[in-house]
Design a protein around this nucleic acid. Structure first.
Lengths: 339, 339
DNA sequence: TTGTAGGCGTTATCAC
DNA sequence: GTGATAACGCCTACAA
């Protein structure tokens, strides 16, 4: 049983292949009788339309490309889930490409997506350099950047970001409300603008509370658990005790918390900890982690929605589409208050 | 600057489009001189081959479909990463479809992949019923089932599984070696064959050690953290103390551990815990979780490799391809031994 | 070494 | 209502 095409059906039904095409797309230009006859026949013969051939003539593939650093990252996974669900509802499918954060692979991925003629692209957690931007522009399809940074503006390129600064403010205000005064910030990877923005929020909240900003309370991390663990000595081994720490992200916070517990400190008794992201781990550790939740599923949906909108009004300049900044939400758990 | 096709290049180079096609595929049937001239021109004009058109005539899309329950699941995410990496190396791309474990969606996903004419399909963590199997067979492409169960054999369908029974044996032997004698098993979702196999391993290891199997030590769970939490009373509220628990999976184990710690018990002092899977969370909780690691990345690679192999020797019966069972590995951490 | 012609499976534009 | 015919972008006999 080889593949069956509309021509095969046409032969069996003794009509032309155009009639079959019309019947299957439920066109009004064909009699109800033959329409049903053909549709029944198609089902019997196990016909499945060839999307390739269709999109070749239609100029649309009903496919979007998603470029991620790594799907292992829980944040990315949840984002992709949001995208995929919304895409599926709109009859789109998703081609997944991961770059492992290597620029070469990222560009290769975009080239692949170009060849596959995707109708839109979503890129996450990337730093989009000038070269990369050039490749994205060559796609001639809408590109939405999620939590990414770009060196220069692109024609078709829009972005969705979480409000990092506001998140930092919320986190630190929460700690201040709890009475903490000596609050550390553990940074993310160097040179990362997300990190700088969260730090700015931290600083703003402190100054807002007439608490002077003390540079020595900013401890370097690396965005991973190891960085958080390594930060412990710099935090607990001081004369003037630090009682709380706001961390660049949840992984950092988890590393710090783990190290603190192992060293015999209590959380939040000796040290209150706030993270950022609200990855799934955050609610499965003990104590559960207080954090700033990124509205990640909303971001995924929103990204897909934006792509669809940009495609529809095929105004290349994407009128009435603007960059989006979504606020995170403070989620209070056991790492800052006793439960 | 609209899309440029080989015809456009042909016009610019003043040759026929067939010559361009040959030049770009580096055919020996074209002079080195014109070949280079055309290739340069193609680059200048920003040509990108149309994969759709190509695969329409070639009969191959260089695309595989991956059907998952949800990409949020860390196990699934890691599997997909393994698949994607190996696929990329073989110049394949991946279409991702998630089913949310709903049979209807799963079948819809397969139908979509059929329309997209993928060259192979990988399905994970699914129960493949008879209806579903029928749809898979209709694909006429190799299908590899990872950690899935099927009601009936399919023509093109092969499988990769972890050795659940052996994993159960390893886990319980480890606890026996540590001196535990009253060991509980917390089950997964009812009716799941993975669960039954792990239970069989548990039972075998006990009997091997002349320790009688006690049905009252088998406590129902649900495969999620909530199930583990709920199991605590049944475990700690007994006259004859239970000192260790082997859990269906890591999420169950984490739930149990969390509940135990909150109730004031120590781990592993009062209760030693072993999970199954080795999801990322397992090494980020405190104490870290001892578990049976599924060789998940290897499973991903292996699945993709199998698909490629099945496609190459297009013997429909897949001679010299057999189902694969991979052994898990005991990873000893702080939830069973003091570190 | 190169050009011409046909076809992959669709949809769309004409006639009839 | 229905049937030829062309087109989408590419590859590949066959001819020159």
């Amino acid at each position: 049983m080889p593949r069956v095409s509309i021509k095969d059906i046409a032969r069996s039904a003794d009509v032309s292949h155009s009639t079959v095409s019309r019947a299957l797309s439920d066109s009004p230009l064909v009699s109800a009788e033959t329409k049903e006859r053909i549709q029944r026949l198609a089902r019997q013969m196990g016909y499945s339309p060839d999307a390739q051939a269709r999109s070749l003539v239609m100029g649309r593939t009903l496919t979007v490309g998603v470029v991620v650093t790594t799907i292992i990252d829980p944040f990315v996974a949840e984002l992709v889930q949001g995208i995929e669900r919304y895409a599926r509802d709109g009859n789109y499918s998703v081609i997944l490409a991961s770059s492992d954060a290597e620029p070469d692979r990222e560009i290769a991925a975009v080239e692949m997506l170009n060849s596959k003629r995707v109708d839109g692209v979503i890129v996450t957690s990337s730093r989009v350099g000038a070269l990369y931007q050039e490749h994205l522009d060559r796609l001639h399809v809408p590109v939405v950047l999620v939590n990414s940074r770009r060196a220069q503006a692109g024609r078709y390129t829009f972005s969705i970001n979480v409000d990092n600064r506001d998140g930092g403010v919320q986190a630190v205000r929460h700690l201040l409300d709890l009475g903490h005064r000596r609050i550390a910030y553990i940074t993310g990877p160097a040179d990362h603008s997300d990190d700088l923005e969260r730090l700015a929020g931290y600083r703003h909240a402190l100054e807002e509370a007439d608490s002077a900003f003390d540079p020595s309370l900013v401890v370097p991390g690396d965005g991973r658990a190891a960085g958080g663990e390594a930060a412990l000595p710099a935090i607990m081994g001081r004369e003037d005790p630090i009682t709380a720490a706001f961390c660049y992200n949840d992984m950092t916070a988890l590393g710090l918390m783990h190290a603190a517990l192992r060293a015999g400190y209590t959380v939040p008794g000796d040290l209150a900890i706030v993270g950022f992201d609200d990855i799934i781990l955050a609610s499965h550790v003990h104590p559960r982690l207080t954090t700033i939740a990124q509205p990640v599923r909303r971001m995924g949906r929103r990204a897909m929605k934006m792509v669809l909108k940009l495609m529809d009004n095929d105004d290349p300049n994407g009128s009435n589409v603007t960059d989006v900044v979504l606020k995170g939400e403070l989620v209070v758990r056991g790492s800052t208050v006793f439960s």
